[in-house]
C-alpha cells in the first residue's frame, strides 16, 4: 500500500511558511519520492494567513491542493482555527504555542504545542521557529530522515549562505528533542 503524506503549513506571511514547505518537499525529493508544493497566492496572503500544501508520496500526485491534511503546522491563531478541524482523524498537528494560545479539544488527532518563537529567540535562532516546528513534526512522525533533510537544506540554501545549514539543523534538533 502506497503511503501519501498530505501536509498543510500555515501562518502569517514572513514566518517562513513557504520555505518550510519547500524543505519538506525537497526532503521527499531527496528520498526519491513524488512531491508537490502549492502556495496560497490569493488575497488571503495580504494580511491574513499564508499557507502551502505539500504532498509526499510513493505514487504520482493527483491534486496538489490539500484540504484535509494528515499533518498540520500552524504558526498563528487564524491558521490554527482555519485548519485544525480539517486534520484527518489519526493525523498530527504541531502548533507554535506562543502564537496559538488555544488548545484543541480533538481527541482523534495528536496535537503538540511548542513555544517555537520563544525557543528560537532564546537559542539565537531568530526567524527559525518554522524549522523548529518541522523538527517536532518529523520527530513525532518520522516521515523524513535527518539525512534527507540535510540534503534538502543543502539544495535550497544558497551557497553564499551555507553557514545557515548548520543553524537550520540545530533548529531541527531542538524541535525533535522538545518535550513537554
Amino acid at each position: 500500500m502506497a503511503t501519501t503524506h498530505e501536509i498543510v503549513l500555515a501562518g502569517f506571511g514572513g514566518q517562513g511558511i513557504l520555505f518550510a514547505g519547500k524543505i519538506l518537499a525537497y526532503s521527499g525529493l531527496m528520498d526519491e519520492k513524488e512531491v508537490s508544493w502549492l502556495p496560497s497566492y490569493g488575497p488571503e496572503m495580504r494580511g491574513g494567513t499564508a499557507n502551502c500544501s505539500v504532498c509526499i508520496s510513493d505514487e504520482p500526485i493527483g491534486s496538489p491542493l490539500v484540504l484535509n491534511p494528515d499533518l498540520l503546522i500552524a504558526m498563528n491563531l487564524p491558521s490554527y482555527r482555519k485548519f485544525i478541524g480539517a486534520v484527518k482523524p489519526g493525523g498530527t498537528a504541531v502548533m507554535d504555542s506562543v502564537m496559538v494560545e488555544e488548545k484543541s479539544d480533538r481527541t482523534d488527532i495528536n496535537c503538540f504545542y511548542v513555544p517555537a518563537s520563544r525557543i528560537a529567540e532564546d537559542e539565537g535562532l531568530s526567524g527559525m521557529a518554522n524549522i523548529i516546528l518541522i523538527g517536532k513534526l518529523i520527530g513525532e512522525t518520522g516521515i523524513i530522515s535527518l539525512e534527507h533533510l540535510r540534503k534538502a537544506f543543502e539544495k535550497s540554501v544558497p551557497a553564499k549562505k551555507a553557514n545557515l545549514i548548520s543553524y537550520n539543523m540545530k533548529a531541527i534538533e531542538i524541535g525533535m528533542q522538545y518535550r513537554k
Binding site: L29, E34, V35, S36, W37, L38, P39, Y41, P64, L65
Partner: peptide
C-alpha cells in the same frame, strides 16, 4: 492555469 504555474514539482 494558476495552479500549475504556481506549484512546485520535481
Amino acid at each position: 492555469d494558476g495552479l500549475l504555474g504556481q506549484m512546485m514539482e520535481p
